[in-house]
Design a protein around this nucleic acid. Sequence first.
DNA 1: GCCTTGACGAGAA
DNA 2: GTTCTCGCCAAGG
Length: 112
Amino acid sequence: MSQFRDKFDHRVWEVVASIPPGRVMGYGEVARAAGFPRYSRMVSAALGRSPDPLPWHRVVRSNRTLAFEEGSSAYREQAQLLKQEGVGFDGLKIVEVETDDSLDRILWGPTD
DNA sequence: GCCTTGACGAGAA
DNA sequence: GTTCTCGCCAAGG
């Protein structure tokens, strides 16, 4: 019986499930938030073991790129899900778009 | 037990 | 900014 794994998995699922739409977290961040620093590589395994659907697409690399190979079906799926939540992409890098009024100002100029 | 594998990360070159 | 290298640590062969 792997006590550590059960605990780890559960904490990770908990953290990932708490990531709000439109926001993302790195594997390392999730691991730390779960109380397991240095376990970034185990996060992916925990996600794969989840019996319930999780917003796994909100977990990305620390450099804000997707963890899958570019062009793979998994990559496209993750990108698709993120875009549905309003997350933008600058090439391969994620650009979390909260409220792009700043961009609006750049394009349309000050509203005043 | 030893060796390899990963949906990783950070620092160096 | 990009590419290399090394560190991490459980899992599976």
